[in-house]
Amino acid sequence: MGQAIAQTMRADAKAMVDAKADITPLLGTWINAKRDTDHIAKVEVTERNGAIFARLYGSADELVDWGEVEANPYVFTGTNMVAGFHARYELGTTSVEIAANVKLGILVIQTYTSFQDERLSQFSREFFHLSSAEPADGEVRRGLAFLTGEWVNTNQNTKWIKGFTLTDHGDRFSLRITGAGEPADWGESWINTYLDDAGEPAFHAEYDLGTVEAALAGNTGKSIIIIAAYVRRKDDESANSFCREFFVPR
């Protein structure tokens, strides 16, 4: 067959040599944003002697400790910035491949579960955020009621919106935003709300902040709120910007 081909993609040529991955964004305790998950409720990622380890907890009447396994970190092409990790669990007759990626304070975990019996293999994809609290119990709100309450940005280094409060006034909702810069208080604005075919809520809001106008498009998925912001600068259209970040209940 001749010499094995080591490079299979042009991106392979960008791989860094003798560089250590910055795994800091992975470390900590991650809680599933979906409170009623029937899969993984909590993930702990730690570092020891230069290696990283993942400990997963399954959802049941009480958390089920899957134990700790070593995980392989991966970086974004051409950088030492960690993009995620891969791990594998062998749980008796069940094998679980874990593929995780991290972005803006959200850990997205995909699992590929296979069985040594007649059960069909399964796939799941869920969102996690850093928290020192245990997974919350209690009622899970549905529809527009899901929107109500205080929400905080998962990106602690945001230069945009730190958090917001959505209030149900009976016939409509209002939004109050806390900015990461000036103005710190964007004030309160009425929003338009929507439901998709699956009953998932969304909303639209507009703010006039003097020299800046912001149109906010919010939608929900995996029990988080995603806001896309379209920011127009009245004095310089070339400085218009777009931002998209994730929010979880405070």
Rank of each mutant, 00 (worst) to 15 (best):
A11I: 09
K14V: 05
K20S: 11
L26I: 02
W30T: 08
A33S: 11
K34E: 14
K34C: 09
V45W: 00
T46V: 02
T46Q: 01
A51C: 11
G58N: 12
S59K: 15
E62I: 06
W66H: 14
V69L: 09
Y74M: 14
F76G: 09
T79A: 06
M81S: 11
F85V: 02
A87M: 04
G92D: 03
T93N: 13
S95P: 00
Q110R: 14
Q116L: 13
E118I: 11
S121T: 09
S121V: 04
S124H: 12
F128D: 07
F128A: 06
S131C: 07
E134S: 15
A136F: 04
A145E: 08
L147D: 01
L147C: 06
T148D: 14
G149Y: 01
E150G: 11
N153G: 01
I161Y: 04
H169M: 06
S174L: 02
G179L: 12
G179E: 04
E188T: 15
N192E: 15
A205W: 01
L209R: 10
A214L: 09
A217E: 11
T220A: 13
I224C: 07
I226V: 14
I226D: 03
Y230K: 02
D235N: 14
A239R: 14
S241E: 12
F242H: 05
C243H: 07
F247P: 02
P249D: 04
R250L: 14
